[in-house]
Amino acid sequence: MNASTITLHVPQRSKIAGRMDFFQMASGVLLILFLWAHMLLVSSVILSPSLMNGIAWFFEATYMAQIGGPAIFVLMVVHFILAARKMPFKQDEWKTFRVHARMLQHKDTTMWLVQVISAILILVLGAVHMFVVLTDLPITAAKSAARIQSGWLYLYLVLLPMAELHVGVGFYRIGVKYGFVGRSKRKWFQKTENVMMIGFITIGLLTLVRFMLLNIQG
């Protein structure tokens, strides 16, 4: 190092890496909370379409849908930008990881691949879905049922498991990465997470069935 390059090597006391990581985690947490709330809204149709309408109306009346919708979209984009730093966009990274995962046969490592793949699908399908729903407010059970019966079902059949997997694994990983779940609780947490994931997918599927069976005319 000499006088001409020394300026490049002044130690950077930047806290940006930590903040990015923190906000990646925070965006994940917020998205999880959102998706759970979203589930409550949508699956309330199982109990009764009018309950769903009521909840939707409540969100509408308080302007939470109009503002919240785009906000969620922004949050998703932010999350994407932060999380994408970790994604293996380079071909050799992707290949290395895949070969590695195949060699190791290790659940958590494989689940990360699932998270990456599901993330891409969510990005595309989720954006389409949000566009469609948000450009056709207000939300009512009838409109939703009509959409689903008109062929959107297939989109949801992919989006639903992808979203749940991504969220489930993400939830587990936040617990682990931030040390909320220590070694002693890992097994328990894994099991809980699996149960939740299966639970949510089941409720989601039931919801879809309910929408399919809903009489749109009525």
């Binding site: 290790h106 682990v176 931030y178 909320f180 070694r183 890992r186």
Partner: peptide, 26 residues
């Protein structure tokens, strides 16, 4: 670290890597 935990699972000495990673990250 992406929390893959393979480190924790293969460490032959059973060093509490998961816990330490979590604590330090937090």
């Amino acid at each position: 670290c992406m929390g893959l935990l393979a480190c924790e699972d293969v460490c032959p000495k059973g060093i509490p890597l998961q816990d330490q990673l979590g604590i330090m990250r937090r």
